[in-house]
Amino acid sequence: MALQSVGLAVPEERVRPANARSTVDKAYRAGARASGALTLALMALIGLFLLLKSWDALHRIGWSFFTTSVWTPETGQFGVWGALLGTFLIAVIALVLAVPVAICAALFVTEYAPARLRRPLTSFIDVLAAIPSIIYGLWGRAYLQPKAINLSRWLGTHLGFIPFFKTDQSHSVASYPASTFIAGMVVALMIVPICTAVMREVFAQAPPGEKEGALALGGTRWGVIKTVVLPFGRGGIIGGSMLGLGRALGETIAVTLIISPLFDPHSLTHVLHTGGISIASLIALKFGESNEFGISALMAAGLTLFVITLVVNALAGIIVARSRSGAATEI
């Protein structure tokens, strides 16, 4: 008994052994454990049911599900390759735009902003995450698109020699709306908050001793950031970006409202041009018009998306957790 070992006289009958819990407490423990287990089971059920209902389609089409890019389950020709490529193109564009912004925003909040501005700033950035994705979609379509077309055309005309910005010969405005690029821009806005939140948390944990040491050596603020904050926050930058990637891959309605569907892999790589697709928007677009087999095929697409986002997020979680423990940082 711990109390006796420090020299306190405790009457024998007052000491309750740690494992003797009342019935209520046993029920409480069991209940709380059961909820934890139920949450686990729910996740397993999601994977299980998607697999179960997609079995019909996957069984019939086999491995070519991952190499076919057209989507016509009625004729027995369907595959997720085009949608997968489109998903990753949108996500990559979103990441390229969002990560530098998120790094700057996180640095500004942790290193530059006056203390009384930090909380409101964080709140405002979080509001971006609270705005429903359908409103992003509407805004992207009605407000951003007419403005972004000019940017797309400029990129296509002047930077067309870069393979990523390659366009066909036509430089008319008509070939630029509803593109992967515009969808990526909107998704970028949607993932900035989550990237910023993770990076902010990790940057804030940069060891104050090292920071003060750098300042004491005569370092500028940028010197401190470059030599202490960024190296210590590297895990957070990578992990936050991957969490953002996970969100970007699964974004549905905003993408669906902006792109006009296109499955041809070659045309998809012309990201500035009209047309794009993602797995999530494929499901949203085709669900209403599918028969039973078509829905099974969509379940297979959903399962693919589910597995990809799980893997990406699990990796991100591991990287962030490791960066928090300080294991992946050295200076």
Binding site: M43, L50, G246, G250, T252, A280, G302, N313, G317
Partner: peptide, 19 residues
């Protein structure tokens, strides 16, 4: 459980609908 809850927060909403 904590890992799964983290993973769950990243489920694409359309997948929840499919489930």
């Amino acid at each position: 459980v904590r890992m799964i809850v983290d993973a769950m927060s990243a489920i694409p909403s359309i997948v929840a609908g499919l489930f």
